[in-house]
Design a binder for these strands. Sequence first.
DNA 1: GTGGTCTAGACCACT
DNA 2: GTGGTCTAGACCACG
Lengths: 98, 98, 98, 98
Amino acid sequence: MSDTEGDRSPLDPMSARPLYAQLADVIAGKIRSGELAPDRPIPSENHLADEYGVARLTARRTAQELRERGLIVTVRGKGSFVVEQPPLDVSEESEIVD
Amino acid sequence: MSDTEGDRSPLDPMSARPLYAQLADVIAGKIRSGELAPDRPIPSENHLADEYGVARLTARRTAQELRERGLIVTVRGKGSFVVEQPPLDVSEESEIVD
Amino acid sequence: MSDTEGDRSPLDPMSARPLYAQLADVIAGKIRSGELAPDRPIPSENHLADEYGVARLTARRTAQELRERGLIVTVRGKGSFVVEQPPLDVSEESEIVD
Amino acid sequence: MSDTEGDRSPLDPMSARPLYAQLADVIAGKIRSGELAPDRPIPSENHLADEYGVARLTARRTAQELRERGLIVTVRGKGSFVVEQPPLDVSEESEIVD
DNA sequence: GTGGTCTAGACCACT
DNA sequence: GTGGTCTAGACCACG
């Protein structure tokens, strides 16, 4: 293939799937592939918004989606971090924002 | 009814032409006359519905009609915008929301 | 006290408790008191926003809060409805938006 | 002051007067001169930080200073606004966010 | 006419 | 410099 093609966004605004869900899929893929490693932060909400050309609220909604999937935990003022292992049970967590 | 009352709406509910098409004609006229300029937003669906006394769904159908005529493009969460130059042919358009 | 005092909103924008949580408390009180009965709709998001002088997004966040507390269920295009009885278990629900 | 260099910032980091107070003085001057009119918003915290080359927190502290001087009121999610008439006494104010 | 998604940008709390 | 809350207002999907 060429290295000059202009296709650069995995998000399709015309899709029936909401942008936040599409973006959550992208990040989830990077988590499962190991590109985003356990205990390491995912890009900040502002960074995601800039990088993928969405509003900050959409990036925030993406983080909410990933929390609900159990893939990240979010710490106020610090960031959102990849969880160690996809949890089977959430009865141990504490102080996780929602 | 009388023929002297102050009703001055350009829309005729009794016409065989659908209301959405009549309203699309009105907006199209304002676009071609320059009253609605290229790259500028047309009134919102709610605004059109209020201003012309039609249902929201009719205003929505009007926007769809104008998109199909190639006169506007619609951006989710932003509004509908007058295209730069009224196209002569619509057989080439793609990726316009519908 | 007098019967002429002008205090009319139970919400305090200066409080450290978020507006959406304060509003959720107000609605929850009306549910528990029976003012909002089981299987009956709570006021729409737009109505809540108008009545309590908050943005629609804040009213939406209130509904999310009430869903998380298990006090309402939300149906797209219909509204949000008071649940029959505060559930002890949520393993039976289906098609509840979030 | 000197003479020919292009540095034209009204703030002096070497001064014993805190930066936030210096910046508050600058904004207060614009309010009293009418450059910032009553009921109109002052520049956002981000804007002030960029324009005067200070940290976001310094801009925030500036706004707090101006609130304490009774020159602005701050509305969450909207901005900070110049008050109608600069008060001569601040011993009566209440319910101003801080 | 409801709730759902989205844009844009503000201030707030915390690290 | 992060995430959290909030305002304002747009279009979308559904009943």
